[in-house]
C-alpha cells in the first residue's frame, strides 16, 4: 500500500513543512502547523473517538461526564485543502530510454504525490487528489487524518494514465471544487495538444488558490541522445515523424527551450512558480530542494 513511499526520500524530507504562500488577504495565515502544536485554538466540535486518534486528543472531562470518549476538534488555523492534481495523460508514460529501469514520469509523479501528501497529512492538512485524463477524472476529496491518507495511497495505486489531458470546459464542476481555499499542486509534463492545460491552470488559479507547478522532465528530453534515422511517435496522438536524429537535436533543444520559456511566461502571469524536476535524478534531492525553496520564498 505504501509502495509509493521511498524510505530514503521520506527520511530526508519528512520534517520539512509544506508551506502555502499567502496569496490573498486574510486567506492564509502563515503556516498550517496546527496539528503539530496539539489541538486547535478555536474549538469547533466534538466527535466520537475513533481508533487511531491520539489519546492526547480525548477530552477526559467530557469522558468523566458522559463515560464516552470524545475528541475535541479544533477549527483549523488555516482552513485550506491541499489538492494534488496529477496529469494522467498518456504523455506521462514517458520513460527515459537511456535508463530503462527508471520510473516513468507517471510513476515518478505518484511517488512525488505520495510523499508530498504525507507531509501535508502529517501537518494536519486536508489532502485531496485529482487525476485527470480525457477519459476519466478521478477525484479524491480532501480530508485529514492518516487513514484518509492511506486511502489516498490505495486510490493512487489504482490510477492509470492514458489518453489526453481533458478539456477545461468538460471538468468545470471539478475545477470549481479546487477554487476554494486550496493549495494546488499540479504534477505534469506540461505538454498539451491545444491549450487545455493552460486553460485549466488559468481557471484553477482564478479562485482562492495557490497553484504550484511541478514539471517532470527526463534525461532523454533534455539531452536528446538519439542518432540515426528515428521515427518519433507522440504518446498521446500517435503521430509519427521520421527524422535524422543527429541533425534534429539542435532543433529539438531549441524547440524545448522555447516551450519552456512560453510555459514560464504563462505561469508567471498567473503568479505561479514553476519547479522542474528531472525524473532521472534522485527524488529525495529534488523534493528537498523544492521544499527548501518554498521555505525561502515564504520568508
Amino acid at each position: 500500500m505504501e509502495r509509493f513511499i521511498d524510505p530514503r526520500t521520506l527520511a530526508r524530507v519528512k520534517d520539512l513543512p509544506l508551506i502555502a504562500k499567502t496569496v490573498a488577504d486574510g486567506f492564509l495565515h502563515g503556516l498550517q502547523q496546527s496539528h503539530q502544536r496539539g489541538v486547535g485554538i478555536e474549538f469547533s466540535q466534538y466527535r466520537q473517538y475513533e481508533p487511531g486518534d491520539p489519546l492526547s486528543r480525548i477530552d477526559w472531562k467530557l469522558f468523566a461526564r458522559s463515560d464516552r470518549y470524545f475528541v475535541r476538534e479544533a477549527e483549523r488555523e488555516s482552513e485550506i485543502s491541499m489538492w494534488f492534481v496529477l496529469d494522467a495523460s498518456a504523455s506521462m508514460n514517458l520513460t527515459s530510454e537511456s535508463q530503462p529501469d527508471s520510473w516513468s514520469k507517471f510513476e515518478y509523479a505518484r511517488h512525488l504525490l505520495a510523499t508530498l501528501s504525507y507531509i501535508g497529512q502529517k501537518q494536519g492538512d486536508h489532502v485531496g487528489m485529482l487525476a485527470l485524463s480525457s477519459e476519466r477524472q478521478q477525484l479524491f476529496p480532501p480530508a485529514s487524518g492518516e487513514r484518509h491518507w492511506h486511502r489516498l495511497l490505495q486510490q493512487l495505486a489504482r490510477l492509470e494514465s492514458g489518453h489526453t489531458f481533458p478539456d477545461a470546459r468538460a471538468i468545470k464542476a471539478t475545477i470549481e471544487r479546487l477554487q476554494k481555499n486550496s493549495l494546488v499542486f499540479i504534477i505534469s509534463d506540461f505538454y498539451q495538444i491545444s491549450n487545455e492545460l493552460h486553460e485549466f491552470i488559468t481557471q484553477v488559479s482564478a479562485g482562492h488558490t495557490e497553484v504550484v507547478a511541478l514539471q517532470l522532465q527526463c534525461d532523454d528530453e533534455l539531452q536528446f541522445p538519439y542518432k540515426g534515422a528515428i521515427r518519433f511517435e507522440d504518446l498521446e496522438t500517435g503521430e509519427q515523424v521520421l527524422v535524422s536524429a543527429g541533425t534534429a537535436r539542435e532543433t529539438w533543444l531549441k524547440a524545448l527551450e522555447k516551450h519552456q520559456q512560453q510555459l514560464r511566461r504563462f505561469l508567471r502571469r498567473q503568479r505561479i512558480t514553476l519547479t522542474t524536476i528531472n525524473i532521472n535524478q534522485p527524488m529525495d534531492q529534488a523534493l528537498y530542494d523544492f521544499l527548501i525553496s518554498r521555505q525561502k520564498a515564504q520568508r
Binding site: 504523455s91 506521462m92 508514460n93 514517458l94 530510454e97 514520469k105 509534463d189 505538454y191 532523454d220 528530453e221 538519439y226 540515426g228 534515422a229 528515428i230 521515427r231 518519433f232 511517435e233 507522440d234 504518446l235 498521446e236 496522438t237 503521430e239 515523424v241 521520421l242 516551450h259
Partner: peptide, 9 residues
C-alpha cells in the same frame, strides 16, 4: 528507422 516514443511531437 527506430521507433522512439516521446511526450510531445
Amino acid at each position: 528507422g527506430r521507433l522512439v516514443r516521446i511526450g510531445h511531437i
